[in-house]
Design a protein around this nucleic acid. Structure first.
Lengths: 224, 224
DNA sequence: CCTTGAATCAATCAATCCATTGAATTATTC
DNA sequence: GAATAATTCAATGGATTGATTGATTCAAGG
């Protein structure tokens, strides 16, 4: 193997990696990905969820598909998009951590870094299972009711973030809360924890979201 | 927090993530990153290493810098670029794994998937340390001599990939070989293992590269 | 202070990307 | 098989990106 070949191989690999990275390099595609990660969705639905035009969403989805980030399946007259296999969540997770790291570095200079440290402190699946067993925490699902109905963690109560402030009374006062939503790169639960902390309620973040939980083969409840 | 705010926060986060992803979305920038990850380098050197023009390399480097992926430092009349802090390698690693996963899926359909499975099977740092202790393996550093001299794993022998085939006789026949180079997303060692396997020599890949080793605080030798 | 070497800036052009529009496919249903 | 609903294709124009060139800044040394 000549050094020429090696350089070509390097370039080929990097070109491949770059193409994937570029595919992730659009806020709209990331949004689509996030929604697709919740389960199979039609193009129309995804367009609605993201506020894009149908044609535009379709094109972005095809872009994602070309790079094997999503898969399609036909269901009657609609096409359902779902997340492709492979460690896609790992990439998004690593990206998010990197972004958070960078943001933290900036903030630690500008702001007093006040609850910054605490904010990022999540609870792991293992710890959660442990604490659920002796029921020392309450699980809070902050996704929209609709998604909650499609499946949620066992024992979780559902209060969408939008209505959280009006429903604080529904929360148990003596338990610590653990909030979760769609995954590590979903801000719903982060917002929720912020809100709760401001009200003086103890709340933490689950490291994972519903998709991760399901993927890990753990039990899931459906319905309201 | 209204649902409007949440959507804005979502969008802001995704825009941030997308920007980082876009920055990684160019083969040339990935190449620069890879070289920069080896240690501080001047613009001219990096241009030379990647085959880019100086001005072009400079611009790409600045792009990387704007997104906090590299840092600069002045040394006399030259500017040295080095890798910024944060989990950058995790992102690249996850990306590489995703790409490999996708490639594996394609190959498993097209080709007979022959040594594909084996190719990806790396040896971990822990296992390596173990096997080095009872010296049942030989470590092979396949980077250029120059980089080897700047630092390498203890006990490693240096045969750059370019000259590997001509120097097979230098290899111990009874030991299994473990090849490593610049990191998980460096193809040098993969090429080397391929070459060796074709010659019927047992060889495996180290999961990590020299930078990871150093970062883990393990001992390092310098000189030739 | 002027020269030299190293890096960056500014301006340009080609190539690509993104959103929009309206037409064309595809599978279903009557 | 015609009508319909869902998605995709094709074409357009505006914005962004990437590489190249030449000029400019910046630090060091005579």
């Amino acid at each position: 193997m000549s050094s020429m070949d090696i350089e070509r191989a390097q370039l080929a690999l990097f070109t491949e990696l770059a193409e994937i990275a570029r595919t992730l390099g659009s806020p709209h595609r990331l949004m689509l990905l996030q929604h697709v990660a919740q389960g199979a969705r039609s193009v129309e639905r995804l367009a609605e969820l993201t506020g894009l035009s149908v044609a535009n969403a379709s094109q972005h989805l095809q872009h994602l598909k070309r790079n094997n980030l999503v898969a399609t399946e036909r269901d009657g007259k609609r096409v359902l998009y779902s997340l492709a296999g492979g460690p896609i969540n790992e990439v998004l997770g690593a990206l998010t951590r990197l972004a958070e790291h960078q943001r933290a570095e900036i903030h630690s200079v500008i702001s007093d870094s006040f609850t910054q440290r605490e904010r990022l402190e999540g609870i792991s699946r293992e710890e959660l299972l442990e604490r659920l067993r002796d029921s020392s925490v309450t699980l809070l699902d902050v996704r929209p009711q609709e998604e909650f109905a499609m499946g949620h963690l066992p024992g979780a109560i559902n209060i969408p973030v939008e209505v959280l402030e009006e429903h604080l009374s529904m929360l148990p006062q003596d338990h610590e809360l653990v909030a979760y939503c769609r995954g590590p790169h979903c801000v719903l639960s982060t917002s929720a924890v912020d809100t709760l902390r401001k009200k003086g309620i103890k709340a933490r973040l689950l490291d994972a979201g519903f998709p991760e939980w399901k993927a890990a083969g753990l039990t899931v409840e459906t319905g309201v």
